[in-house]
Amino acid sequence: MVRSIFMSVILIFGTLAVIKPNEPLAFSGQVIERGAFGDDVIELQARLQYLGFYKGKIDGIFGYGTYWALRNFQEKYGLGVDGVAGAKTKNKLAGISDYDSEWVHQQINKGNRFTYYGGIPLAQQTSAGAGSSESSDVQLPVKYSERDLQLMANAVYGESRGEPYEGQVAVAAVILNRLESPDFPNTISEIIFQPGAFTAVADGQIWLTPNARAKEAVLDAMNGWDPSENALYYFNPKTATSKWIWSRQQIKQIGEHIFCY
């Protein structure tokens, strides 16, 4: 008897699993707070938007917009107001909102503009976007944009893809040091495309698709790392012919590049 009840329970749960194979579980076990990034944050933003608390972009970045929306939600539902999505907050959110993970991720991947408000058919919540992902791929310090990251990654990859990781971070840091220097233009784009400034621009290698390592190197430089020790220039001693570059004050050598002021 006990055995047949046990078997029936397993059968029922098994059938349910087959009927609704894609029903997403609400959130992972992580506590989510400001600074977090990824799928959990996408779900948090979508659920807050479903309930009308969040009107910003669903991009997977837990910034201030998400923070205030979460605090407002916590206040409304009598939860501890701390802007942190712990177990209680997540359970409450999951209990009173729907979340179609597949649909939301599909819209993000297609680059569609979309909202995720409850009570409106999904088809009415989206409009065609850029055709490729608009979701943020990385979180950057506030003074840099994703366009800066992309341009710099192209430059770093074109200039130093054969160099050690440290050398790639150093090349990115040189670009950022120029941004701070009065001797150079005021934007990353102008610095990179200044005629004669980078070999990769002159020979077209800047248009190669950068790999994840080059992007990570730029990200580290944007976050403050500078293995070049404040350098403004670098050159390859095997190929450099300019007398002027040899006259600069040298700091250190990384791989094939000498970094200097």
């Binding site: 001797d183 233009p185 005021n186 200044q194 400034a197 002027w244």
Partner: peptide, 29 residues
Amino acid sequence: NEFRSTISSLPLSREVSNEWLRYVGNIGE
């Protein structure tokens, strides 16, 4: 600022370009 931006788009030698950017940048600042 506009002059700095224009001068940096010209293929001048590094030395000339740097000196212009610094001098005119100082006037602007």
